[in-house]
Nucleic acid binder design. Structure first.
Lengths: 224, 224
DNA sequence: GTCTATACATAGATAGAC
DNA sequence: GTCTATCTATGTATAGAC
């Protein structure tokens, strides 16, 4: 699996899922021409993620977003009813893409050892392709309304569960050593998160995506 | 080393360092009675960290802080000249305590293997004793003014350097295997951070500080 | 569909009384 | 030292013109 292939796949999913999102938010979006909506939604989401890689969502004003997206403040409110709804829109879209791609990839593996490698590699590739979104989600998680916060936590635990299941299967199959499965999955997840949260560090140290992924796989295999 | 001893030590450092901080910010603090200042500064800092475990520093209003600390808005401005200065005050105080305690602890180890264990254990204990502060620093790092952001990064890299040095010494001494030292230190750091960033998760899964610390040591020793 | 103008709310900071 | 009252800036959201 090569990173470029992976990135293409993510881009395709993005388009598909944009339409689903549009359906779910039909009430709030006042603009009727579908093409226009998707075009502008992408502008808006990209601009938001871009701004929020530098400051928090809270600190981003609608004025900021207007300037960065090229739409007027008034026009922006044709695409969402409140700033908070924009936040929810972004989160749910990203979550859907991420879960879909990740699950697809893992299914390609035939045994636990291969599934583990695939899960690690595709998670890191995914967070590379959608870095701003992953960063955004991690940082903004606690600023969400209750309901949305629960979804974020559920999503976090779901990803971790993918790893727990793989590890348990591996132990049953006699491929992995016995040990604390939950802690093993937790530390693997911690390593995965470090890639998108500390990208500035790895960039300055010239660590590539592949190098990092291989190292995490190496660590995981050492403890399992 | 027991966690309770450790916690006591941190509390003592807190008092000592409060005085240093007071010196550094003498100009901004209008209140003259030293005792009063320390008393209220602690109230203010604790209240801030408490509020900011639920929302961002930005989202915390001076009105919120006034309510939580028991001081009026006007009185608060006798202890700092701007909200941003309060932020800097908290960060620099915490950083000093953390660096001091950590360095002290590591120095107690006699060989690289022991130093590594001590470094891991004391970092996790430290982040347990000062959890709100560690969380706060991680989350707020990017919302800082340039100068302060540089200090945060320097501090992050300093901690990592502690690990890099220990690992390198260990390799030279033939205790640890050859390998990518920077990546090894990075993933250890990632695991340490997970403890204070995902405390809700470990709490709900009933993972204790000691159990987690032992596991991280286990992982580190597996790869080294 | 998008813009400009503006209403309305909230937050940071200060002045001056106590 | 601390409080109350208040100024000013900034930000969200809407109305109505184009």
């Amino acid at each position: 699996m090569i990173y470029n292939e992976f990135k293409k796949m993510v881009t395709i999913s993005k388009e598909e899922i944009s339409e689903q999102i549009l359906e779910n938010h039909r009430d709030s979006i006042k603009v009727k021409k579908e093409k226009k909506v998707i075009e502008n939604l992408i502008k808006i989401i990209d601009a938001t993620l871009d701004i929020c890689s530098k400051k928090s969502f809270q600190a981003m004003s609608i004025r900021d977003l207007s300037a960065a997206s090229g739409l007027s403040r008034g026009a922006l409110y044709s695409y969402f009813t409140s700033k908070e709804e924009l936040l929810i829109l972004i989160l749910s879209q990203g979550r859907q893409i991420a879960n879909q791609v990740l699950t697809e990839q893992i299914a390609k593996g035939s045994d636990p050892a291969e599934k583990l490698r695939l899960a690690i590699k595709s998670h890191i590739y995914l967070s590379e392709a959608m870095q701003t979104w992953f960063y955004f989600t991690y940082i903004e998680a606690r600023n969400l309304p209750r309901e949305e916060q629960k979804r974020a936590i559920a999503s976090e635990l779901y990803t971790e569960k993918l790893f727990i299941d793989i590890i348990e299967d591996g132990i049953t199959a006699g491929i992995f050593r016995e040990g604390n499965v939950i802690l093993a999955a937790s530390v693997i997840k911690a390593m995965l998160q470090d890639w998108y949260m500390k990208r500035w560090k790895y960039k300055s140290r010239k660590v590539s995506v592949d190098e990092y992924a291989d190292y995490v796989i190496h660590v995981a295999e050492s403890i399992l």
